[in-house]
Design a protein around this nucleic acid. Structure first.
Lengths: 207, 207
DNA sequence: GTCTATATCCAGATAGAC
DNA sequence: GTCTATCTGGATATAGAC
Protein backbone atom coordinates (compact mmCIF):
# COMPACT_ATOMS: atom_id res chain seq x y z
CA UNK A 1 0.00 0.00 0.00
CA UNK A 2 1.23 3.42 -0.91
CA UNK A 3 1.67 6.10 1.68
CA UNK A 4 1.36 9.75 0.81
CA UNK A 5 4.26 11.38 2.60
CA UNK A 6 3.82 14.86 1.18
CA UNK A 7 0.18 15.26 1.89
CA UNK A 8 0.61 17.39 4.99
CA UNK A 9 3.18 19.53 3.29
CA UNK A 10 0.83 20.14 0.44
CA UNK A 11 -2.02 21.04 2.71
CA UNK A 12 0.27 23.38 4.60
CA UNK A 13 1.43 24.99 1.41
CA UNK A 14 -2.14 25.31 0.20
CA UNK A 15 -3.22 26.99 3.43
CA UNK A 16 -0.19 29.27 3.36
CA UNK A 17 -0.98 30.36 -0.19
CA UNK A 18 -4.60 30.96 0.76
CA UNK A 19 -3.44 33.15 3.62
CA UNK A 20 -1.09 35.00 1.31
CA UNK A 21 -3.91 35.67 -1.12
CA UNK A 22 -6.13 36.91 1.66
CA UNK A 23 -3.43 39.23 2.95
CA UNK A 24 -3.02 40.68 -0.53
CA UNK A 25 -6.80 41.03 -0.81
CA UNK A 26 -6.94 43.03 2.41
CA UNK A 27 -4.16 45.25 1.18
CA UNK A 28 -6.03 45.87 -2.02
CA UNK A 29 -9.40 46.73 -0.48
CA UNK A 30 -7.73 49.02 2.06
CA UNK A 31 -6.09 50.90 -0.77
CA UNK A 32 -8.91 50.97 -3.31
CA UNK A 33 -12.15 50.35 -1.46
CA UNK A 34 -13.95 47.17 -0.54
CA UNK A 35 -16.04 46.92 -3.69
CA UNK A 36 -13.03 47.52 -5.95
CA UNK A 37 -11.44 44.14 -5.33
CA UNK A 38 -10.19 42.83 -8.67
CA UNK A 39 -9.16 39.24 -9.19
CA UNK A 40 -6.70 40.30 -11.88
CA UNK A 41 -4.86 42.71 -9.62
CA UNK A 42 -5.09 40.27 -6.76
CA UNK A 43 -3.54 37.47 -8.79
CA UNK A 44 -0.78 39.74 -10.07
CA UNK A 45 0.05 40.95 -6.57
CA UNK A 46 0.77 37.37 -5.48
CA UNK A 47 2.56 36.44 -8.71
CA UNK A 48 -0.16 34.31 -10.22
CA UNK A 49 -2.31 34.30 -13.28
CA UNK A 50 -5.94 35.08 -12.49
CA UNK A 51 -7.39 31.60 -13.06
CA UNK A 52 -4.94 30.12 -10.58
CA UNK A 53 -6.87 31.82 -7.81
CA UNK A 54 -9.66 29.38 -8.48
CA UNK A 55 -7.49 26.64 -7.05
CA UNK A 56 -7.78 28.39 -3.72
CA UNK A 57 -11.19 30.03 -3.83
CA UNK A 58 -14.28 28.98 -5.73
CA UNK A 59 -15.28 32.51 -6.59
CA UNK A 60 -14.78 36.14 -5.76
CA UNK A 61 -17.53 35.95 -3.18
CA UNK A 62 -15.71 33.04 -1.59
CA UNK A 63 -12.78 35.40 -1.09
CA UNK A 64 -15.07 37.99 0.46
CA UNK A 65 -16.49 35.28 2.68
CA UNK A 66 -13.06 34.16 3.85
CA UNK A 67 -12.19 37.78 4.56
CA UNK A 68 -15.43 38.14 6.48
CA UNK A 69 -14.57 35.10 8.58
CA UNK A 70 -11.08 36.49 9.24
CA UNK A 71 -12.47 39.84 10.31
CA UNK A 72 -15.07 38.26 12.55
CA UNK A 73 -12.41 36.08 14.13
CA UNK A 74 -10.21 39.11 14.74
CA UNK A 75 -13.18 40.77 16.43
CA UNK A 76 -13.66 37.83 18.78
CA UNK A 77 -9.96 37.39 19.51
CA UNK A 78 -9.21 41.04 20.16
CA UNK A 79 -12.36 41.40 22.21
CA UNK A 80 -11.49 38.57 24.54
CA UNK A 81 -7.87 39.63 24.92
CA UNK A 82 -8.39 43.37 25.30
CA UNK A 83 -11.50 43.41 27.46
CA UNK A 84 -10.96 42.64 31.14
CA UNK A 85 -14.67 43.14 31.89
CA UNK A 86 -14.27 45.28 35.00
CA UNK A 87 -16.62 44.98 37.93
CA UNK A 88 -18.00 48.50 37.55
CA UNK A 89 -20.74 48.11 34.93
CA UNK A 90 -20.30 51.66 33.65
CA UNK A 91 -16.61 51.06 33.07
CA UNK A 92 -17.41 47.75 31.43
CA UNK A 93 -19.80 49.40 29.00
CA UNK A 94 -17.29 52.14 28.26
CA UNK A 95 -14.61 49.56 27.59
CA UNK A 96 -16.94 47.67 25.30
CA UNK A 97 -17.75 50.69 23.18
CA UNK A 98 -14.10 51.72 23.13
CA UNK A 99 -13.18 48.35 21.80
CA UNK A 100 -15.96 48.34 19.22
CA UNK A 101 -15.37 51.83 17.84
CA UNK A 102 -11.61 51.47 17.72
CA UNK A 103 -11.90 48.09 16.07
CA UNK A 104 -14.12 49.65 13.41
CA UNK A 105 -11.96 52.76 13.06
CA UNK A 106 -8.81 50.70 12.57
CA UNK A 107 -9.92 49.43 9.16
CA UNK A 108 -12.65 51.00 7.04
CA UNK A 109 -12.76 48.16 4.54
CA UNK A 110 -13.12 45.60 7.32
CA UNK A 111 -15.87 47.67 8.89
CA UNK A 112 -17.78 47.86 5.61
CA UNK A 113 -17.40 44.14 5.06
CA UNK A 114 -18.44 43.11 8.57
CA UNK A 115 -21.04 45.67 9.53
CA UNK A 116 -22.43 47.12 6.36
CA UNK A 117 -23.83 45.56 3.23
CA UNK A 118 -21.72 47.10 0.52
CA UNK A 119 -21.14 44.18 -1.85
CA UNK A 120 -24.33 43.61 -3.88
CA UNK A 121 -24.31 39.84 -4.26
CA UNK A 122 -22.50 38.96 -1.06
CA UNK A 123 -23.94 37.53 2.12
CA UNK A 124 -21.70 36.05 4.82
CA UNK A 125 -22.07 32.45 5.84
CA UNK A 126 -24.39 31.88 8.79
CA UNK A 127 -21.53 30.71 10.99
CA UNK A 128 -19.60 33.92 10.43
CA UNK A 129 -22.72 35.96 11.00
CA UNK A 130 -23.36 34.15 14.26
CA UNK A 131 -20.44 35.99 15.85
CA UNK A 132 -22.17 39.35 15.99
CA UNK A 133 -25.23 37.71 17.48
CA UNK A 134 -23.09 36.13 20.19
CA UNK A 135 -21.39 39.42 21.02
CA UNK A 136 -24.78 41.08 21.23
CA UNK A 137 -26.08 38.42 23.61
CA UNK A 138 -23.03 38.99 25.79
CA UNK A 139 -23.84 42.68 25.87
CA UNK A 140 -27.42 41.93 26.83
CA UNK A 141 -26.10 39.89 29.74
CA UNK A 142 -24.05 42.84 30.92
CA UNK A 143 -27.05 45.16 30.83
CA UNK A 144 -29.08 42.57 32.69
CA UNK A 145 -26.44 42.55 35.43
CA UNK A 146 -27.05 46.30 35.71
CA UNK A 147 -30.67 45.47 36.47
CA UNK A 148 -31.89 46.40 33.00
CA UNK A 149 -33.90 43.88 31.06
CA UNK A 150 -35.60 46.28 28.66
CA UNK A 151 -34.56 45.28 25.14
CA UNK A 152 -35.10 48.87 24.07
CA UNK A 153 -32.09 49.84 26.14
CA UNK A 154 -30.02 47.29 24.29
CA UNK A 155 -31.19 48.72 20.97
CA UNK A 156 -30.43 52.23 22.12
CA UNK A 157 -26.98 51.17 23.22
CA UNK A 158 -26.14 49.53 19.91
CA UNK A 159 -27.38 52.63 18.10
CA UNK A 160 -25.06 54.76 20.19
CA UNK A 161 -22.08 52.50 19.51
CA UNK A 162 -22.62 52.22 15.77
CA UNK A 163 -23.31 55.94 15.52
CA UNK A 164 -20.00 56.77 17.15
CA UNK A 165 -18.17 54.33 14.91
CA UNK A 166 -19.95 55.54 11.80
CA UNK A 167 -19.26 59.21 12.43
CA UNK A 168 -15.65 58.50 13.33
CA UNK A 169 -15.10 56.64 10.09
CA UNK A 170 -17.12 58.93 7.85
CA UNK A 171 -15.99 62.30 9.12
CA UNK A 172 -12.64 61.89 10.86
CA UNK A 173 -10.90 58.82 9.45
CA UNK A 174 -7.63 58.22 11.19
CA UNK A 175 -8.48 60.70 13.96
CA UNK A 176 -10.20 60.39 17.31
CA UNK A 177 -12.86 63.10 17.26
CA UNK A 178 -15.68 60.72 18.14
CA UNK A 179 -13.51 58.25 20.03
CA UNK A 180 -12.91 60.99 22.61
CA UNK A 181 -16.67 61.23 23.14
CA UNK A 182 -17.15 57.58 24.04
CA UNK A 183 -16.77 57.79 27.82
CA UNK A 184 -19.11 60.75 28.01
CA UNK A 185 -21.62 59.12 25.66
CA UNK A 186 -21.71 55.87 27.61
CA UNK A 187 -22.06 57.78 30.86
CA UNK A 188 -25.02 59.60 29.36
CA UNK A 189 -26.56 56.29 28.39
CA UNK A 190 -25.79 54.69 31.72
CA UNK A 191 -27.44 57.41 33.76
CA UNK A 192 -30.44 57.43 31.48
CA UNK A 193 -30.73 53.66 31.71
CA UNK A 194 -30.50 53.49 35.50
CA UNK A 195 -32.99 56.35 35.84
CA UNK A 196 -35.45 54.56 33.57
CA UNK A 197 -35.01 51.35 35.54
CA UNK A 198 -36.00 53.18 38.69
CA UNK A 199 -38.86 55.09 37.09
CA UNK A 200 -40.41 52.87 34.45
CA UNK A 201 -43.46 55.12 34.09
CA UNK A 202 -44.40 56.86 30.91
CA UNK A 203 -44.93 60.29 32.52
CA UNK A 204 -41.68 62.16 32.96
CA UNK A 205 -40.93 64.32 35.92
CA UNK A 206 -38.75 67.38 36.22
CA UNK A 207 -35.44 67.04 37.95
CA UNK B 1 -31.32 86.56 -38.90
CA UNK B 2 -32.47 83.08 -38.16
CA UNK B 3 -34.48 82.36 -35.08
CA UNK B 4 -34.42 78.98 -33.39
CA UNK B 5 -38.04 78.30 -32.57
CA UNK B 6 -37.64 74.73 -31.34
CA UNK B 7 -34.78 75.33 -28.98
CA UNK B 8 -36.91 75.45 -25.84
CA UNK B 9 -38.78 72.38 -26.88
CA UNK B 10 -35.54 70.52 -27.36
CA UNK B 11 -34.23 71.57 -24.00
CA UNK B 12 -37.49 70.55 -22.39
CA UNK B 13 -37.42 67.21 -24.09
CA UNK B 14 -33.80 66.70 -23.11
CA UNK B 15 -34.56 67.51 -19.48
CA UNK B 16 -37.59 65.23 -19.52
CA UNK B 17 -35.54 62.34 -20.87
CA UNK B 18 -32.85 62.97 -18.27
CA UNK B 19 -35.49 62.83 -15.56
CA UNK B 20 -36.90 59.64 -17.03
CA UNK B 21 -33.46 58.06 -17.00
CA UNK B 22 -32.90 59.11 -13.40
CA UNK B 23 -36.26 57.69 -12.35
CA UNK B 24 -35.34 54.38 -13.96
CA UNK B 25 -31.93 54.49 -12.27
CA UNK B 26 -33.54 54.94 -8.85
CA UNK B 27 -35.84 52.05 -9.57
CA UNK B 28 -32.88 49.88 -10.49
CA UNK B 29 -30.73 50.69 -7.46
CA UNK B 30 -33.69 50.21 -5.11
CA UNK B 31 -34.23 46.77 -6.59
CA UNK B 32 -30.64 45.58 -7.00
CA UNK B 33 -28.48 47.70 -4.72
CA UNK B 34 -26.74 50.99 -5.26
CA UNK B 35 -23.51 49.56 -6.62
CA UNK B 36 -25.31 47.26 -9.05
CA UNK B 37 -26.40 50.02 -11.40
CA UNK B 38 -25.82 48.78 -14.94
CA UNK B 39 -25.92 51.10 -17.94
CA UNK B 40 -27.09 48.28 -20.17
CA UNK B 41 -30.10 47.50 -18.01
CA UNK B 42 -30.74 51.18 -17.49
CA UNK B 43 -30.74 51.88 -21.22
CA UNK B 44 -33.02 48.94 -21.93
CA UNK B 45 -35.49 50.03 -19.25
CA UNK B 46 -35.96 53.37 -21.01
CA UNK B 47 -35.97 51.87 -24.50
CA UNK B 48 -32.50 52.97 -25.58
CA UNK B 49 -29.27 51.42 -26.66
CA UNK B 50 -26.53 51.83 -24.04
CA UNK B 51 -24.43 54.42 -25.89
CA UNK B 52 -27.44 56.73 -26.22
CA UNK B 53 -27.26 57.39 -22.49
CA UNK B 54 -24.09 59.32 -23.15
CA UNK B 55 -26.15 62.02 -24.83
CA UNK B 56 -27.61 62.73 -21.42
CA UNK B 57 -24.84 61.88 -18.99
CA UNK B 58 -21.10 61.96 -19.51
CA UNK B 59 -20.44 58.84 -17.50
CA UNK B 60 -21.89 56.43 -15.02
CA UNK B 61 -20.56 58.58 -12.19
CA UNK B 62 -22.34 61.58 -13.70
CA UNK B 63 -25.57 59.62 -13.24
CA UNK B 64 -24.65 58.90 -9.63
CA UNK B 65 -23.89 62.58 -9.17
CA UNK B 66 -27.25 63.66 -10.58
CA UNK B 67 -28.93 61.13 -8.29
CA UNK B 68 -26.95 62.54 -5.38
CA UNK B 69 -28.11 66.06 -6.20
CA UNK B 70 -31.71 64.84 -6.44
CA UNK B 71 -31.49 63.11 -3.07
CA UNK B 72 -29.88 66.11 -1.42
CA UNK B 73 -32.57 68.38 -2.83
CA UNK B 74 -35.27 66.04 -1.54
CA UNK B 75 -33.63 66.25 1.87
CA UNK B 76 -33.75 70.05 1.88
CA UNK B 77 -37.28 70.25 0.50
CA UNK B 78 -38.79 67.69 2.84
CA UNK B 79 -36.95 69.16 5.77
CA UNK B 80 -38.27 72.67 5.24
CA UNK B 81 -41.83 71.49 4.58
CA UNK B 82 -42.12 68.91 7.34
CA UNK B 83 -40.28 70.67 10.16
CA UNK B 84 -42.20 73.42 11.94
CA UNK B 85 -39.25 74.06 14.35
CA UNK B 86 -41.27 74.25 17.56
CA UNK B 87 -40.37 76.60 20.37
CA UNK B 88 -39.51 73.85 22.83
CA UNK B 89 -35.88 72.97 22.00
CA UNK B 90 -36.30 69.35 23.12
CA UNK B 91 -39.25 68.91 20.80
CA UNK B 92 -37.34 70.62 18.02
CA UNK B 93 -34.44 68.21 18.41
CA UNK B 94 -36.78 65.24 18.49
CA UNK B 95 -38.51 66.44 15.35
CA UNK B 96 -35.15 66.88 13.66
CA UNK B 97 -33.99 63.35 14.41
CA UNK B 98 -37.39 61.95 13.46
CA UNK B 99 -37.13 63.64 10.11
CA UNK B 100 -33.55 62.49 9.56
CA UNK B 101 -34.03 58.85 10.51
CA UNK B 102 -37.28 58.48 8.61
CA UNK B 103 -35.78 60.15 5.56
CA UNK B 104 -32.93 57.65 5.68
CA UNK B 105 -35.18 54.69 6.41
CA UNK B 106 -37.45 55.51 3.49
CA UNK B 107 -34.81 54.57 0.90
CA UNK B 108 -31.74 52.47 1.61
CA UNK B 109 -30.12 53.17 -1.75
CA UNK B 110 -30.58 56.92 -1.29
CA UNK B 111 -29.13 56.69 2.20
CA UNK B 112 -26.07 54.83 0.95
CA UNK B 113 -25.57 57.32 -1.85
CA UNK B 114 -25.98 60.43 0.32
CA UNK B 115 -24.48 59.44 3.63
CA UNK B 116 -22.12 56.56 3.02
CA UNK B 117 -19.32 56.05 0.58
CA UNK B 118 -20.31 52.87 -1.17
CA UNK B 119 -19.33 53.59 -4.78
CA UNK B 120 -15.53 53.28 -5.10
CA UNK B 121 -14.75 55.98 -7.65
CA UNK B 122 -17.58 58.35 -6.82
CA UNK B 123 -17.41 61.65 -4.95
CA UNK B 124 -20.32 64.10 -5.03
CA UNK B 125 -19.83 67.57 -6.40
CA UNK B 126 -18.95 70.19 -3.78
CA UNK B 127 -22.23 72.01 -4.28
CA UNK B 128 -24.26 68.91 -3.52
CA UNK B 129 -22.07 68.15 -0.56
CA UNK B 130 -22.59 71.65 0.80
CA UNK B 131 -26.17 70.75 1.71
CA UNK B 132 -25.23 68.49 4.58
CA UNK B 133 -22.86 71.13 5.92
CA UNK B 134 -25.67 73.69 5.86
CA UNK B 135 -28.05 71.37 7.69
CA UNK B 136 -25.37 70.74 10.28
CA UNK B 137 -24.80 74.46 10.80
CA UNK B 138 -28.54 74.87 11.31
CA UNK B 139 -28.43 72.17 13.96
CA UNK B 140 -25.53 73.89 15.67
CA UNK B 141 -27.62 77.05 15.83
CA UNK B 142 -30.41 75.16 17.54
CA UNK B 143 -28.07 73.76 20.16
CA UNK B 144 -26.63 77.24 20.70
CA UNK B 145 -30.14 78.50 21.39
CA UNK B 146 -30.31 75.86 24.14
CA UNK B 147 -27.27 77.51 25.66
CA UNK B 148 -24.88 74.87 24.42
CA UNK B 149 -21.85 75.97 22.45
CA UNK B 150 -19.69 72.89 23.01
CA UNK B 151 -18.97 71.38 19.60
CA UNK B 152 -18.60 68.01 21.30
CA UNK B 153 -22.31 68.05 22.00
CA UNK B 154 -22.98 68.59 18.33
CA UNK B 155 -20.75 65.64 17.46
CA UNK B 156 -22.47 63.48 20.05
CA UNK B 157 -25.85 64.45 18.68
CA UNK B 158 -24.93 63.57 15.10
CA UNK B 159 -23.55 60.23 16.30
CA UNK B 160 -26.85 59.49 18.00
CA UNK B 161 -28.85 60.39 14.90
CA UNK B 162 -26.74 58.41 12.46
CA UNK B 163 -26.60 55.46 14.85
CA UNK B 164 -30.37 55.29 15.06
CA UNK B 165 -30.66 55.56 11.29
CA UNK B 166 -27.96 52.99 10.69
CA UNK B 167 -29.41 50.41 13.06
CA UNK B 168 -32.90 50.97 11.71
CA UNK B 169 -31.73 50.34 8.15
CA UNK B 170 -29.34 47.51 8.92
CA UNK B 171 -31.40 45.48 11.35
CA UNK B 172 -35.05 46.35 10.83
CA UNK B 173 -35.53 47.61 7.28
CA UNK B 174 -39.10 48.61 6.69
CA UNK B 175 -39.89 48.52 10.40
CA UNK B 176 -39.76 51.07 13.19
CA UNK B 177 -37.77 49.33 15.92
CA UNK B 178 -35.25 52.18 16.27
CA UNK B 179 -37.62 54.91 15.12
CA UNK B 180 -39.65 54.24 18.24
CA UNK B 181 -36.57 54.97 20.34
CA UNK B 182 -35.97 58.43 18.94
CA UNK B 183 -37.93 60.51 21.44
CA UNK B 184 -36.36 58.67 24.35
CA UNK B 185 -32.87 58.92 22.87
CA UNK B 186 -33.13 62.64 22.24
CA UNK B 187 -34.50 63.18 25.72
CA UNK B 188 -31.52 61.31 27.09
CA UNK B 189 -29.22 63.54 25.08
CA UNK B 190 -31.07 66.70 26.01
CA UNK B 191 -30.89 66.08 29.73
CA UNK B 192 -27.24 65.15 29.48
CA UNK B 193 -26.49 68.26 27.47
CA UNK B 194 -28.28 70.65 29.80
CA UNK B 195 -26.66 69.02 32.82
CA UNK B 196 -23.23 69.38 31.29
CA UNK B 197 -23.95 73.02 30.45
CA UNK B 198 -24.71 73.70 34.10
CA UNK B 199 -21.73 71.72 35.43
CA UNK B 200 -18.91 72.05 32.94
CA UNK B 201 -16.34 70.61 35.36
CA UNK B 202 -14.39 67.50 34.60
CA UNK B 203 -15.01 65.81 37.96
CA UNK B 204 -18.37 64.13 38.10
CA UNK B 205 -20.56 64.10 41.13
CA UNK B 206 -23.03 61.52 42.31
CA UNK B 207 -26.70 62.22 41.90
C1' DG C 1 -2.82 19.39 -8.38
C1' DT C 2 -1.33 23.43 -10.18
C1' DC C 3 -0.20 25.92 -13.74
C1' DT C 4 -0.79 28.47 -18.72
C1' DA C 5 -3.73 29.49 -22.34
C1' DT C 6 -7.93 30.43 -23.88
C1' DA C 7 -13.00 31.11 -24.43
C1' DT C 8 -17.27 33.34 -23.17
C1' DC C 9 -19.85 36.82 -21.28
C1' DC C 10 -20.72 41.37 -19.45
C1' DA C 11 -19.16 45.97 -18.02
C1' DG C 12 -18.26 51.09 -19.30
C1' DA C 13 -16.95 53.98 -22.93
C1' DT C 14 -15.88 55.84 -27.79
C1' DA C 15 -16.14 56.50 -33.09
C1' DG C 16 -18.65 57.41 -36.74
C1' DA C 17 -22.83 56.58 -39.91
C1' DC C 18 -27.39 58.44 -40.47
C1' DG D 1 -29.91 62.16 -30.87
C1' DT D 2 -29.82 57.57 -31.78
C1' DC D 3 -27.98 54.02 -33.78
C1' DT D 4 -24.25 50.09 -35.07
C1' DA D 5 -19.75 48.63 -34.44
C1' DT D 6 -16.02 48.33 -31.63
C1' DC D 7 -12.46 48.96 -27.84
C1' DT D 8 -10.71 47.82 -23.29
C1' DG D 9 -10.98 45.35 -19.33
C1' DG D 10 -12.96 42.23 -15.61
C1' DA D 11 -15.31 37.83 -14.07
C1' DT D 12 -16.03 33.15 -14.74
C1' DA D 13 -15.07 28.72 -16.54
C1' DT D 14 -12.73 25.03 -19.23
C1' DA D 15 -8.85 22.57 -21.79
C1' DG D 16 -4.72 20.79 -21.60
C1' DA D 17 0.49 20.95 -20.43
C1' DC D 18 3.53 19.37 -16.77
Amino acid sequence: MLVQPDRDRRAERHAATRAEILDAAWEQVRASGLAALSLRDLARSVGMQPPSLYSYFDSKNAIYDAMYAQGAQQFVDEQSESMPTPEDPLKALQAGVHFFVEFCAADLARYQLLFQRVIPGFEPTPESFKISADSLAELGGLLARCGVSDPKMLDLFTALGTGLADQQLSNDPGGDRWIRLIDDAVEMFYEHMTNKAKQPRKGRRKK
